[in-house]
Design a protein around this nucleic acid. Structure first.
Lengths: 104, 104
DNA sequence: CCAATGGTTCAACTATTGTCGAACCATGAC
DNA sequence: GTCATGGTTCGACAATAGTTGAACCATTGG
């Protein structure tokens, strides 16, 4: 098995719109995604709810977003850098992120 | 209790975007919603998967869509008429239905 | 009225998701 | 190397969601 420092990201062509919708259908996950609209962010810097969330929980929430093709999660220093897969998603599901992440 | 012939539809202001996303995050429910984009449809006429679905299952799937504010379900003759709550949803979540229901 | 059609609801069950402690892994600082 | 920091993974459990038969309800047609 490969070093788990590089996590798996599905090719965007393997991502179904239902996967994306499901990933964003949870308030905590949606909140995480919205923190990335203005650009990449250190994982340590973004918070799911504002309150304290166990790191296992946060890691799991981001895993769902990652496996749904919504976010990218790459090593950076001793932490990780998160980013939206904006361009790719816009190409396949035009307007989706705009409407979902833009609406309050 | 009131006659269950009139089902409950949440005011659109009570509908969270996460409710809508969740309702549409299931392939069968998404397929149902997509059959309504061109206008209202008799419930008996729309099929969830193409294959045979027990009526209890179909009723349940539509209940999720209804309670998420996505579809309206009113009595019509001895059956029911389904429709998207297009205008209301467009007002609150602009572009959402366009991008979700429009994309293949 | 009665029967057929179309649908909802209930209840019981299965299956999927979510949560989080504990153990483990990688990197950077020293 | 060692320690601290930041994160993933595993495993067990809790909670939520999905499926479906059976019972029931409403409407239309005869």
């Amino acid at each position: 098995m490969t070093a788990p420092t590089e996590l798996h990201h599905p090719p965007i062509s393997d991502v179904a719109i239902t996967d994306v919708l499901f990933a964003l259908s949870d308030p905590a996950r949606l909140a995480l995604a919205r923190q990335l609209v203005d650009g990449p962010m250190d994982m340590a810097a973004c918070s799911a709810t504002g309150g304290p969330v166990p790191k296992a929980t946060k890691s799991h929430q981001l895993k769902v977003l990652r496996e749904a093709g919504v976010v990218r999660n790459v090593p950076k220093g001793r932490g990780r850098l998160l980013s939206l897969r904006r361009d790719e998603l816009d190409a396949v599901f035009p307007g989706l992120l705009d409407s979902v992440l833009g609406t309050r």
